[in-house]
Amino acid sequence: MFAACADPSGLDGLAWLGCYLTTGKHIDFYWSFLTVLILLAVTAPVALAFGFGGAMAARSPVLPLRLMGKGYTAMVRGIPDIVFFLFFVIALDQGLEWMLHQVRCPGWTDPIRQGLEFRVCPEAKIPSGNAAQIWHRLYGFGLAVVTFAIVFGAFAANVLYGAMQAVPKAQLETGESFGMSPRQVFHRILVPQMWVYALPGLSNLWMILIKATPLLFLLGVQDIVYWARELGGSKTSAFAYPHPDWRLYYFLGLLVFYLCMTRASEIVLGRLTQRLTRGQATLAGDARRRAAR
């Protein structure tokens, strides 16, 4: 990157480290932090939308819709989330290719599942076989985002369903007695009041989402875990910057990154809890009273 780094073997000390930390691969590593932040920024609203839909479906008076909603909210309770991550990435990929196959190759007679292979016609491959590398990576990232949104949508649906149930019934009945339609009651009374009850659960969910981001590595995305393993592994003198096994230091860096991310969220959560314990007849409330004295 810099002119002084042209010959790394002649460098030592801080100059060596400076050059080492600015190699092309390290720049890729720094960009992958952005991947994590993009994932958080995209997944959070999409998962919230999924959760909202799930919670609404679970409250629906239509039986099939209600069953679907309840099933969606219940699915994350008994099954490890990582099973979903591994499952949805393949299942979504095959599902998309299968649909495209049905549309684009109606004359195809061979079975799609041939023994141990999943074979669709070449026109139905996503992305198409000769697409640039960047499309393959974007497609992989897109699949990961959808997977995260489905799983975290189920968590959010749990929280929002509970929050909707927590709004006092009398409030909704008052709306009805004023002659509001069910739709109006939902929009004007239930949703505005629900957020107060949902806030603790949703902030908790945000923390969980932050801590789930390294699972991107399992979905085949080149994220920070991938690069930490790649760059930290011991390099022989065949490489420009030989060094022993430094993965420990790279993972320590990642640990600090995540601790900073969660610390910031924890401070916000802490303020919230402080407000809630104020004036309660418990040890925490006593401690606050003593501190105020």
């Binding site: 801590k211 789930a212 981001t213 390294p214 699972l215 590595f217 875990v225 930490a228 393993r229 096994d245 993965r247 420990l248 993972f251 320590l252 990642l254 640990l255 995540y258 601790l259 969660t262 610390r263 924890e266």
Partner: peptide, 22 residues
Amino acid sequence: IFVFRGSPLFIQFFLFYEVFVL
């Protein structure tokens, strides 16, 4: 509590494995 609750278990596994290897 902060270190173990604030960081992903996934990263903790990797980190401890490297410590044990070293």
